[in-house]
Structure formats: C-alpha cells, structure tokens
Computed example of a mutant assay.
Amino acid sequence: MGLRRKSRELALQFLFSHDFQERASTPETVVQDLELFCHSFEVGQKAMPYARLLVEGICLRLDEIDILLAEHSHNWRVERMSSVDRNILRIAIFEMLLADEIPAQVVINEALEIAKHYSIHDSVPFINGILDAVQTAVPK
C-alpha cells in the first residue's frame, strides 16, 4: 500500500471519529484533535504530512466541498449519507480541488479502493457515480 493511501485512510479514520463525536471543525479544534488522535493511536509518521494536509484542507473548505457533494448526489442529502461514505467523498473532492496535484481518475480509483475496504459493497458504485459527476464540475 502506498504512502498516500495510508494518508487517505488515516484522514478517513480521523474525519469519521470527528463526525461521530460531533466536534467543531474550526482550525484550532481540528489541529488539537488531530494531535490527540495521533497520540492515542499508532500512526505512521510518514503518512502524517499528507493526512494533515487532507484533514486541515477539508475542514477549511468543508462548506465548498459539501456544496459540490450535495449538487451531485441526487436524492441524497449529505447529512443522510453514511459517515464513512461522506468522508471518503470529502477526501476525494478535496483532492480534486487541488487540481494539478493528482489526476481526477487516480483520485476516484483511490476513493473506490478505500470504499471497498471500509464501506459496504453498494457504496462503491454510489461513490463512483458522485465522483464522476463532481469531476466534470471541478475546474481543471
């Protein structure tokens, strides 16, 4: 497994726990919570820089990401999605917003692989459909 995949999984685990605890997404709170999370669990230090970029970036741009998510998830409200699926989608959309950093198809494939591991079977086509639609809306 690549380093970026580990970073994405770490970000997913943190965002899931953050949602579950209904914690605030202010930059200060996120930084403190991420430090506590890393201290509490065995976190690979090599995966931390990109995971931190993902977590902090998602929290800073959460409204923008959730608007894109809501616009492209027909008949699904963001808050009604499973927390795992919602956060996989948030990670992928944030990576797409980074534009030139990672090709959209790579982002989508990574999201699908993570969904296969952390979510249910039916989530894979659900996530794929939303990310395909978002991909066309995100400026390149």
Results as ranks from 00 to 15, higher is better:
47 A>V: 05
64 E>H: 11
73 S>Q: 04
75 N>Q: 15
15 L>I: 02
54 L>V: 00
46 K>I: 06
138 V>M: 04
7 S>R: 12
77 R>Q: 12
125 P>K: 02
41 F>Q: 08
9 E>H: 04
12 L>D: 09
4 R>V: 15
96 M>K: 02
45 Q>G: 09
120 I>D: 01
97 L>V: 03
117 H>M: 10
28 E>R: 14
117 H>G: 07
64 E>D: 11
72 H>K: 15
88 I>S: 08
4 R>Q: 14
99 A>W: 10
107 V>R: 07
119 S>T: 01
91 I>Q: 03
41 F>R: 08
57 G>N: 00
32 Q>L: 12
133 A>Q: 08
60 L>G: 00
118 Y>Q: 08
64 E>G: 03
9 E>S: 02
44 G>A: 06
76 W>K: 14
72 H>F: 13
49 P>Y: 10
96 M>T: 02
61 R>K: 04
130 I>G: 02
39 H>K: 13
32 Q>F: 10
80 R>V: 14
35 E>I: 10
122 D>Q: 10
104 A>M: 09
23 R>W: 05
52 R>M: 01
6 K>W: 09
11 A>Q: 12
14 F>T: 07
120 I>Y: 01
68 L>F: 08
47 A>Q: 07
26 T>G: 08
31 V>Q: 05
22 E>C: 10
112 L>C: 15
60 L>E: 01
96 M>V: 02
54 L>C: 02
121 H>C: 00
97 L>G: 01
77 R>Y: 06
31 V>E: 07
103 P>Q: 14
108 I>G: 11
34 L>W: 11
76 W>G: 06
125 P>W: 01
112 L>I: 15
7 S>Q: 12
123 S>W: 06
55 V>H: 09
68 L>E: 04
111 A>Q: 07
45 Q>V: 09
71 E>H: 11
134 V>H: 06
72 H>V: 15
65 I>S: 01
17 S>H: 14
10 L>K: 12
105 Q>P: 07
41 F>N: 11
73 S>F: 02
135 Q>F: 07
123 S>I: 08
29 T>A: 15
75 N>A: 15
26 T>H: 05
70 A>F: 03
115 A>M: 03
35 E>K: 14
135 Q>H: 07
